[in-house]
């Protein structure tokens, strides 16, 4: 008779029902809470993260942290106080606005031109060399020259952010059009769908997952760029709050601003993923198994 407690949560590694990512366990490791935790993964990560934060807090409570490192509790209270008194919230709004403009222009242009290049070979042949040549240049290096023309102004920052965000979106949009199954296009052609319809109803949805990867990268990049440009130019915003706090050794304000920036970056990313997921549900269903 089969001892059911010994049957682990596992999939066959061979044959028809095999799926990728299967792990085979020796009998000793098969059952119990630990097994379920490691399969679900996030409980383990949570425990590890919890231990790290706990150790950090403990060191802080014991006074063993260097003066420039705050304990988690202190960071949280700093965030609270600076948010509620307005310094951080104002700075955050300013930074977000700047970032949004640059991101929208850069990613928007990148996606549009990328899709265009994907479907019009002539356009691709013209623009791709330009993109490939200029891609490896760190766009932040353009900030001082641009600042010479536009001053250390919001416009200069928008331009630099837009330039940086353009590339990942463009490149991934083109890549998204590349992998389109020829059969889809043939079906559309067979039904004598017009170019426009083919584009919107075949090319665009098919390119969407890859395109969104690029947009996601652009978004993360915009956060980095807004910090960098604000730090360099000292324009008001989270970036300059961080730098000023650093210069005046106001550790609490510095960590609070860093934390706010970090959390905003996370939220923005999650938001984008959530929006993306609702647009690509069919793709998810078509894909099988874990990555």
């Amino acid at each position: 008779m089969i001892d059911e407690s010994r049957v682990a949560n596992e999939q066959p590694t061979v044959g028809e029902w095999a799926s990728a990512g299967t792990q085979v366990l020796p009998p000793e490791q098969r059952h119990g809470v630990l097994e379920r935790m490691v399969t679900a993964r996030w409980p383990v990560a949570l425990v590890v993260a919890g231990c790290l934060v706990g150790a950090w807090q403990l060191m802080g409570a014991l006074g063993r942290l260097p003066v420039y490192v705050l304990s988690p509790a202190e960071v949280v209270s700093a965030v609270w106080s600076y948010l509620t008194d307005g310094t951080l919230s104002e700075a955050a709004v300013v930074s977000l606005r700047r970032l949004a403009v640059g991101f929208a222009i850069g990613a928007g242009l990148g996606v549009t031109l990328g899709l265009l290049a994907g479907v019009v070979p002539l356009f691709h042949a013209v623009i791709d060399p330009l993109v490939s040549f200029t891609f490896p240049l760190p766009k932040i290096a353009l900030f001082p020259p641009i600042a010479l023309w536009l001053g250390f102004s919001d416009r200069a920052i928008w331009l630099v952010i837009a330039l940086a965000c353009f590339y990942p979106s463009f490149i991934n949009a083109v890549a998204g059009t590349r992998g389109i199954d020829r059969h889809h296009l043939w079906v559309a052609g067979n039904l004598t769908a017009g170019h426009w319809r083919t584009f919107w109803q075949v090319v665009f949805p098919a390119a969407l997952p890859r395109l969104l990867v690029g947009v996601r990268i652009s978004l993360a990049l915009s956060f980095v760029m807004v910090f960098a440009t604000e730090a360099i130019s000292s324009r008001p915003g989270l970036g300059s709050v961080i730098v000023e706090s650093y210069q005046f050794l106001r550790y609490d304000r510095m960590y609070a601003a860093i934390a706010v920036l970090a959390v905003l970056g996370l939220i923005a990313d999650r938001l984008l993923v959530w929006i993306a997921r609702s647009g690509t549900r069919g793709h998810d269903i078509a894909a099988v198994g874990r990555g």
């Binding site: 993964r41 420039y68 730098v243």
Partner: peptide
């Protein structure tokens, strides 16, 4: 599997954070 379970979610979660913002901390350290 254990290292995967412990670390990959943390990596994925911290990926979108602009780690450049931590540069001042590095300067202090």
């Amino acid at each position: 599997r254990w290292i995967d379970a412990a670390i990959e979610p943390l990596l994925a979660a911290t990926y979108p954070i602009p780690k450049l913002a931590l540069y001042p901390v590095f300067l202090f350290t």
